[in-house]
Nucleic acid binder design. Sequence first.
DNA 1: AGGAAACATGTGATCGGTCACAAGATTGAC
DNA 2: GTCAATCTTGTGACCGATCACATGTTTCCT
Lengths: 339, 339
Amino acid sequence: MADPIGPSIRDVARLAGVSHQTVSRVLNNPAAVAASTRMRVDRAIAQLGYRPNVAARALKTHRSQLVGVLVARNSLFVAQDGLSRLEMTLRDRGMRVLMSGLAGSSRSDARHSVAPLLAQGVDAVVIAANEAGARELAYELAGAYPVVVLTPGVTAEAGLSSAAIDLEAGVKDVVAHLVDRGDRLLRHIAGPPTYTTTAARATAWIHELNHRELPVRPIVNVVNTAQGGYDAARAILDHDVPDAIFCFNDLVAIGAIRALQERGLRVPHDVAVVGVDDMPGADHVLPSLTTLRQPLQDLGEVGATLLLELLAGQPARSALIAPELVVRESSAGTRERGS
Amino acid sequence: MADPIGPSIRDVARLAGVSHQTVSRVLNNPAAVAASTRMRVDRAIAQLGYRPNVAARALKTHRSQLVGVLVARNSLFVAQDGLSRLEMTLRDRGMRVLMSGLAGSSRSDARHSVAPLLAQGVDAVVIAANEAGARELAYELAGAYPVVVLTPGVTAEAGLSSAAIDLEAGVKDVVAHLVDRGDRLLRHIAGPPTYTTTAARATAWIHELNHRELPVRPIVNVVNTAQGGYDAARAILDHDVPDAIFCFNDLVAIGAIRALQERGLRVPHDVAVVGVDDMPGADHVLPSLTTLRQPLQDLGEVGATLLLELLAGQPARSALIAPELVVRESSAGTRERGS
DNA sequence: AGGAAACATGTGATCGGTCACAAGATTGAC
DNA sequence: GTCAATCTTGTGACCGATCACATGTTTCCT
């Protein structure tokens, strides 16, 4: 059905009255062909509707023009256009994206997910997953393939570049914002321990609190859902009522806010809440969410750029993208101290 | 870097002391090889770490084992694991997924996005986009490729199968639910006109209202965002206050609820709100959203199944997946009539 | 005008599989 | 014991590109 195998390079050659090699040259290095000949060939190509056979080309050249992308299921990077942006940037450079979903969080899960990509003969691999196993896999692969990792805390080495949102810097902004409005007892609801981002974010948080000599008590959440945030917030409230809660992301923040309201605490009057992501709807939810916006589209673009650099033989490097603090209702106003 | 071209089928043959054709047989039709020979070959394969070269195979067989998937940017199908599920189901059958993002909504935008997929020699195409242009493209492609469309209102023809969530049935449930709780003046905030789903949903809505002899006045929204829902709701309220609003999706519903609250209307006491999708967080937002849950993962799986059927030469067909009405706070309780 | 360098084009081998066909070995029926 | 059918394995061509190399033509410098 998809078969009726089209014309080959030799058919074009015959029609244009040149050799097959000349046609190949027109395709790959037009400058090496006389203008008049080139025009004749181009016309023949158009006339026959010729399209090069990628399999034949890959067979001979040992390059597939394929980039394998390992993506976590349910990841915001995918949802928020990040993957699309990566793909479109690569597409413009003649590369195609082979996608593979990642199920679990262990290293063997990750290995299992890349296998088909490698079997397909990809030229390079992009790892867009915060799962710990995926990150380990990246180092494993780095010897054999150009690899780009889109997750924080990955050191660039030969053949392995990395890009991430600089949430360490973002966390600084969050703390500054909360302290400015008069909050002192700050709590953090961290993410699932299997994400590399969880530790990164929690560490930055603790570091910043220590720096400002504020009390520190983080809580690790187990699931990346609103329910997880709800449960974690209740656990916090069983202990005491903080001035503000910084949540792993907006989804978790939504759950936390519900828990607060149920206890009769008003947001932001009694407790301020800050999330991360600026997920769709965060601006209209009640109350709207103060959040660290992650420019995931930029991440996709930077990732593509890093990959193209590696493929061009340039050295591996790390890139950081700054997030943006968007202040909304959930942390609006100023706390009147001395109450 | 990804080069050091591995052993070929002939290397394996030499080591096992057989002909290259026998190795090929072990790979493709093991039953046709004597058990003892097969074992020798298998051992040689393992010993050399041989992996078949997909390019060579594709060159000869004219099948790439690649499925091209056209996905709308920012689509929930992607976000909610639908794409992952599609990919994983296909992966189990030895197929790989080539992804291509869709930018605009016109037919030429769609054509521009599939082009690289076709150039790469995919065996089939999946269209996971509600954009009108993408649907038109599906018919265009159906003659030359097996095509599966994941959007409503597509008629199955030779080589073109389709799957969609049966929102017509879902809309019935929504109306029944609202009428049950005593609502009579029902309004609809539709989606962007460029989505095929917008018309499908609005039509089903109007049909159902007519059927029950209720007043009909749908509103078409222009953008698929919370802000769009907010604006549309305000436009409705400028006219009168309905008993309930059925929104294009949860995101739009969130915006609508904000508009209602700003006018001093309580949800669901004064106005009930129903969305579609059951997006992450819909269960913890304030108020939590009554919604038509779209089983997008199932959609991915069914899509994969339809595709495999087409590739196996079976006839095209359409499949519908039932959504599920999840009642939550935004339409809880019963309206006391006669006020 | 002669000869080297640069330019333009062609020839045949090759990448690593599968396909069509041939041929030897084994089995079973009569 | 013979012959056909079946099973098992091997041989060589071929898919459609690119690569290395060869050859013929211009260009241009001395």
